[in-house]
Design a protein around this nucleic acid. Structure first.
Lengths: 138, 138
DNA sequence: TACTTTATATCTTAATATACGATATAATCT
DNA sequence: AGATTATATCGTATATTAAGATATAAAGTA
């Protein structure tokens, strides 16, 4: 089984390596991680960023401050607890995140065009299934 | 079609988000990219690193120097052209790369254990097919 | 063989990013 | 009213990124 897992990981990293967007922005690793967190979870504040990155709350606050200045993020006070801020991605933040974590659309389309309908369906169903199960389990 | 591509990307980024390893090392984005390049391509030297990252050759050389010092990389002179160095990953480099780009094996195994045999086969075949085609096309 | 080109390396400089302790303010809880 | 929580800022130290200037060695070319 763990042989299989390694193999799946090899497929996974191969796919990403060959299909990622050309590296353009010099976006740092912590910026990507924060954008991912806010994109995929709800009600994220500075405390949650600190936990996710495994850094102190003052460090997380500094990161968030810089990302707001770069217009990747925006913040608003929570209504239930006005000490807390809730973070969200700006349009620019979404674009930057997309270019740094998604598969390049043109490359992906180009590859999918080489596949027959069965293979396309196979891939789409597989990713959909895995994605849904992953969300249920985690 | 581009609706579909977006959807596939959403599955893709969801899967990664939920299954990535906990963020431990504070590894920078350029280090990850260099490790990925050397892992997936052959005959990589400083010039190729510079092109891949879109930086100057002296910047690439500095990156490589630091990564050698951290024992992520090792270098050897090419036999055909002794001006050139060929870079390779150390065991440590492989570990660090794996933890920063692969799906967490325990998480992945846990999710796969929730699937029936058909779904498992579907996912494995899909990733294998896509990985193989991607390598052919790119 | 001399000159040109290529590949890499180092030094220096400047800017940015990361990280946290100390300290502060405001809001909520007890 | 005091304790706790959530965030923010400042100061400090270190790391990373990037490139221009300069250098050496190897290969290519006339």
């Amino acid at each position: 089984m763990s042989n299989n897992i390694s193999l799946l990981n090899q497929y996974w990293t191969d796919i990403y390596f060959y299909l990622h967007y050309p590296h353009k922005e010099k976006i740092s690793h912590q910026v990507v991680r924060i954008l991912q967190l806010i994109d995929k979870r709800k009600e994220i504040g500075v405390g949650e960023v600190a936990s996710h990155l495994n850094v102190s709350h003052n460090t997380a606050s500094e990161h968030v401050k810089r990302m707001i200045a770069k217009k990747y993020l925006k913040k608003e006070r929570a209504t239930k607890d006005e000490r807390k801020v809730i973070l969200s991605l700006t349009n620019l933040g979404e674009e930057v995140l997309y270019r740094n974590t998604s598969l390049d659309e043109k490359k992906l389309e180009h590859v999918l065009n080489q596949l027959n309908e069965n293979e396309k369906s196979l891939i789409e169903n597989a990713l959909k299934t895995l994605s849904e199960r992953v969300k249920q389990c985690m």
